[in-house]
Design a protein around this nucleic acid. Structure first.
Lengths: 354, 354
DNA sequence: GTGAAAGCGCTAACAG
DNA sequence: CTGTTAGCGCTTTCAC
């Protein structure tokens, strides 16, 4: 064919098929108003030629604005979720030329009526695509069913609920992450008493991820080291003063416990306690690359962190919406971020890449 | 200003400054043939307005083809370097719309005259940008000096030589990677005898990375565990039959050595040996996510791998050339890939992301 | 020096 | 149903 130099354009196809560019465009996009005869001719040419549309030209010509809305747990600056937001904002600026706008809405993970009220607010803004951190299946489905109906694509971030059929999700595999944590902690100190530090409000764990990681962790220990004794401490998500007292009790009652884990990013609370009390030789593992956690890693009060790549999750979810909606690419539906071990030796190379 | 809805275009600037789009374009790109007066007017507007050029429109209009050439060590399919190539090819296809073409040239790391002959070949192909895996400083500089002179940007991949002033580099930090390996191995088994398995040709280590990692590894042990005894085994890069004999001798002579490391991707050679000989309880660490290494990780003959992210390195280097040459973005000059620990528990989530 | 105009590959509106 | 045409934002002639 005519691919002598360079690319095949719509115009080339039109010429080959003996129709106009308009018709080719209609066929390519499955738009109406094409006779069976013309469609056949175009499809014939398409079969023989390797046509790759120039998506940048396409986006330029169609000249649309896209609104992506996002629903996340409320949080303070510097916490896990702000890193997710930064990843999204980075994607917005990198793909600025596609005219995308991202807006973020919040809910209180301990009061799920706010999930619903925020989602209603979002629907008023005529979104083109949505990113959601799911809460419980029941409450989340109220929102996603409406989205399905209106054919607005949605992506889950940080955890997923497959039965709700998101367009895609991006998360860390929670049980596998728990296995990995168990294996590392056991290697650090193969004793048989392990402490689990839980952040909760009235016994309620606020995130699916945390709950599932803990389950994986415990399953791994039961299977490989069934003699392990597990001690749990529930730390109320509030005043730090109280937390210290609780930890004093906890450590005093379990003098043979030299290993501990915290399944979310608030491990610095325990690290800072250890540092203050001058407790050395306690092997502590937590999640996430927050500044306060990094500090603990450096001073040795936290020995390991597992990265959850929140920045990457935010960036990738946004990118997926762009790929799907604007560049019309196939996207990967299951996106698990790496389970990456961070220690003092490699933390400087943990990167927010995209 | 007029940014009421949407973006600022060159046309807007032209109107504001009372000149034509041609003149604005000339000013924006520092092209000649602009009067001092016009330049001033345009720069004035530019200062007050937040103009972000649409690089896709720009690339579309200029309609250029770019040739990126790359010089890598020769290798067999399925080895480390083919993963690098795949990352580059992925970048080529993702950014296909920018009309880029990547071609790869090879050299023999144990015969550096081939580095020079290949580089001369490359110069005949009028490259727009170049990616090089550097060999020795002396030989590499012969090439890079010519590139500097002709103002062809070049990027180093896998390792770097700062004195040669590449546009950028992408690599794993070798000494830090050695520290990390030492810390992990010591944790796996805090005994004091460690074996180092070296791949070499006539005593020569074929890569800068390997040499520097080993140095970091040894330095870490000297500092933190000075009593450690290090045994080294040099494995000729050839027949596997011979290698087994050498390893038999090695293991027999050091019965108290239960930990070992191999600083490159050929660790499967040792893993497969352990598997065949039925040696359990030996803690082996190596580099890279090759299929044969993964198999060793699964069957337990290799306990740890450190990922070098070759695919990402290939992708990122190519992307940097695109960012620099086509999208005119600022690029990061020092790009260290993560030092990521892979075990049976997390290897499935090690991803070739981009 | 400068502006006008054509065109990159594609979309969308509009005649017919 | 179909072809033509006018852009999208930018670059690049080419007259003046």
């Amino acid at each position: 064919m005519e691919e002598i130099q360079g690319r095949v354009r719509i115009k080339d196809i039109a010429e080959q098929a003996g129709v106009s560019v308009g018709t080719v465009d209609r066929v390519l996009h499955g738009r109406p108003n094409v006779s069976e005869k013309s469609r056949k001719k175009v499809e014939e040419v398409l079969k023989q030629i390797d046509y790759k549309p120039n998506m940048y030209a396409s986006a330029l010509a169609s000249n649309k604005r896209y609104r992506f809305l996002c629903l996340l747990p409320q949080h303070k600056p510097g916490e896990y979720w702000s890193e997710v937001e930064q990843g999204m904002m980075k994607a917005q600026s990198v793909y600025n030329d596609f005219n995308i706008k991202i807006e973020i809405f919040y809910y209180d993970p301990f009061d799920l009526t706010t999930f619903t009220s925020s989602s209603q607010e979002m629907m008023k803004n005529s979104p083109d695509g949505i990113i959601i951190n799911p809460c419980s299946k029941e409450v989340t489905s109220l929102f996603t069913e409406e989205l399905q109906e209106k054919e607005i694509p949605f992506i889950f971030i940080d955890s997923t609920i497959p039965e709700l059929h998101p367009l895609a999700f991006c998360a860390q595999h929670p049980t596998q992450s728990g296995y990995f944590a168990a294996r590392i902690l056991h290697m650090a100190d193969p004793t048989s008493e392990i402490g689990i530090f839980r952040q909760a409000v009235a016994g309620l764990i606020g995130s699916n991820q945390q709950r599932d990681r803990e389950a994986g962790f415990i399953r791994y220990l039961h299977k490989h080291y069934p003699k392990t004794i597990i001690h749990k401490l529930e730390l109320p998500n509030k005043k730090f003063g109280r937390q210290f007292d609780l930890m004093d009790d906890f450590f005093n009652s379990h003098p043979n416990m030299h290993v501990g884990i915290c399944f979310n990013s608030k491990v610095f609370g325990i690290g800072e306690y250890l540092e203050k009390r001058g407790i050395k030789q306690f092997h502590l593992l937590g999640y996430e690359h927050l500044d306060r956690n990094k500090e603990c890693l450096r001073n040795g009060s936290v020995e390991f962190l597992i990265a959850q790549h929140p920045w990457k999750q935010g960036f990738d979810c946004t990118k997926m919406l762009i790929d799907y909606l604007i560049l019309k690419k196939d996207i990967k539906r299951e996106n698990y971020v790496p389970i990456e071990l961070l220690t003092a030796e490699n933390i400087d190379f943990y990167s927010r890449t995209y």
